[in-house]
């Protein structure tokens, strides 16, 4: 249930995000979810894509600094209170979330990309509480 996330170091300048998305578009790679964490003069683009190793190779060939790490994708009903329920389960089990980002699709499902201090335990806790996780095979 581990999903591979790509992190890319980007300088804070006009067009730098567009360059990355341009390269991905050129190679037909779809970003399932992404977010930009920004500091004063740079940012980190984090994203979940269907073929992370391929995307990483392509970006490295374009001289980007790319890091791959593990995240967990939680499937939630796109209704009020569903995220809260999941978060409560995690906090009750003393799991601290480092960062997360989410997207909602049109079919009433919201996906939340999460990274915690202990991803494996997070998976275990969520599954024990009947929460649905997204397997890597479902990434498109």
């Amino acid at each position: 249930m581990i999903i591979k996330q790509l992190s890319i170091f980007l300088e804070d300048k006009t067009g730098s995000l567009a360059r990355v998305t341009g390269i991905l578009a050129q190679h037909g790679i779809n970003m399932s979810a992404f977010c930009v964490a920004d500091a004063t003069d740079y940012g980190i683009l984090r994203m979940v894509v269907a073929r992370p190793e391929l995307a990483s190779d392509i970006l490295r060939n374009h001289n980007y600094s790319v890091h791959i790490n593990d995240v967990v994708c939680l499937k939630l009903k796109d209704v009020s209170g569903s995220l809260n329920k999941a978060l409560k389960v995690l906090s009750d089990n003393d799991i601290c979330i480092d960062y997360m980002y989410a997207y909602a699709s049109t079919d009433g499902v919201a996906i939340s990309v999460m990274h915690s201090n202990d991803n494996n335990r997070m998976i275990e806790v969520l599954q024990n509480n009947k929460m649905e996780l997204m397997p890597a095979s479902e990434m498109l």
């Binding site: 996330q5 992190s7 890319i8 964490a37 500091a39 980190i44 984090r46 890091h67 480092d98 990274h115």
Partner: peptide, 14 residues
């Protein structure tokens, strides 16, 4: 920054 990015955290870069 080196080619092999080592983190995904802003605080580590800071």
């Amino acid at each position: 920054i080196a080619d092999k990015f080592w983190t995904t955290e802003i605080r580590e870069i800071e």
